[in-house]
């Protein structure tokens, strides 16, 4: 295996209105299968992706939120949520279906700077 790179996925879109959230998740799973150092960042409406209790029967769309719980199996354990975005949406850590690290905007920015590859969704 060649050198391991630091991949960061920046998720800024709510699920289901657009295809971004699902596409990001798929690329995350592919990247993780190649033993890379993967971290996920959720900010702005992206924090909604992790909301517990999604029920998509009524909109006849696949509920892909359970897959976030499988990330651990893929050794993707670095999930960061922006505090400001979370607070502005009336959400708390208990609302998320996986455990996350809550950071400030400044910390998120610094983390972005550390990456080899940043993928934007």
């Amino acid at each position: 295996m060649s050198e391991v790179k630091k991949f960061m996925f920046v998720n800024r879109k709510a699920p289901y209105g657009t295809i971004y959230a699902l596409e990001s998740l798929e690329v995350v799973l592919i990247t993780a299968a190649f033993d890379q150092d993967v971290s996920l960042m959720f900010l702005d409406d992206g924090v909604y992706q992790l909301k517990k209790g999604q029920q998509t029967k009524g909109i006849e769309t696949k509920n892909f939120s359970p897959a976030y719980r499988a990330l651990e199996d893929y050794d993707v354990e670095k999930l960061y949520v922006d505090k400001e975005s979370m607070d502005a949406r009336g959400l708390t850590e208990e609302d998320f279906l996986v455990s996350v690290t809550v950071l400030s905007r400044a910390e998120m920015g610094a983390l972005m700077d550390e990456q080899d590859v940043v993928l934007s969704f």
Binding site: P15, Y16, G53, Q54, Q55, T56, K57, G58, N63
Partner: peptide
């Protein structure tokens, strides 16, 4: 539109 709110896990809020 409730089906849209339920899909996003916020029907109770």
């Amino acid at each position: 539109l409730m089906p849209d709110l339920d899909a996003r896990g916020l029907g109770d809020r």
